[in-house]
Amino acid sequence: PEAADLRALARHLYEAYLKYFPLTKAKARAILSGKTGEKVPFVIHDMKSLMEGEQFINCRQIPSLDHQQQVSTLRFFHSCQSRSAEAVREVTEFAKSIPGFIDLDLNDQVTLLKYGVIEVLIIMMSPLMNKDGTLISYGQIFMTREFLKSLRKPFCQMMEPKFEFSVKFNTLELDDSDMALFLAVIILSGDRPGLLNVKPIEQLQETVLHSLELQLKLNHPDSLQLFAKLLQKMTDLRQIVTDHVHLIELLKKTEVDMFLHPLLQEIMKDLY
């Protein structure tokens, strides 16, 4: 494809990204570095601040449990799920904006989302994280990494691999326009299990890959091998998703009050 077409594709995906994803990397980094006119996030660093901070957490789907400390961990886990389900909807809208995506076989669209969406969500989490913690609730709350590590097992094991990945991923210093293309590349993976018609998916991905390569050359002229480094991250991502799904399966078996959101159940069932 012509360079002008590749640039137009990059612009289109960046616009869709800004339209569907409410918390951009630019905004998240501004909040994390304190360079923002907005409110400083509420910090959750222990059970007491978790209970205080719950008023800020988007919890539309949470059943009304009583406010006891012993259920706080599960209740927090439920509000995370609710936000994740909303994020899946955002990613779906973004996927539909990728030129050619909605023309693919509908079953293949489902497969691409089923396998791609957790990878996309993990990439989107990276800009919200630093080595000390993560923004949640649209940037209104900062939850410390130490607090997440202090939760009882297996909850304490859920976020640590994402922090390790994110801290490394953030050193690549992608911006939101780079991220938009990378997310589209992830979604358009032609090797997902059960795809019916791989060729058109690979063709779409190839065009987006060309656009990403050009984007990185123009946007990061001094960052050598950035394109190759980024593609290598896709391998790490698959392992993180596999481990995450296994952890959720463990939770389903061991937690009596465990409720898994129906959309997340659909995505994780028979995934890996």
Partner: peptide
């Protein structure tokens, strides 16, 4: 198709199709 009912709905409807 039944196995991925909500994903199908999300893909086929553009505005708030599912009560998440």
């Amino acid at each position: 198709k039944e196995k991925h009912k909500i994903l199908h709905q999300l893909l086929q409807n553009s505005t708030s199709p599912v009560d998440l």
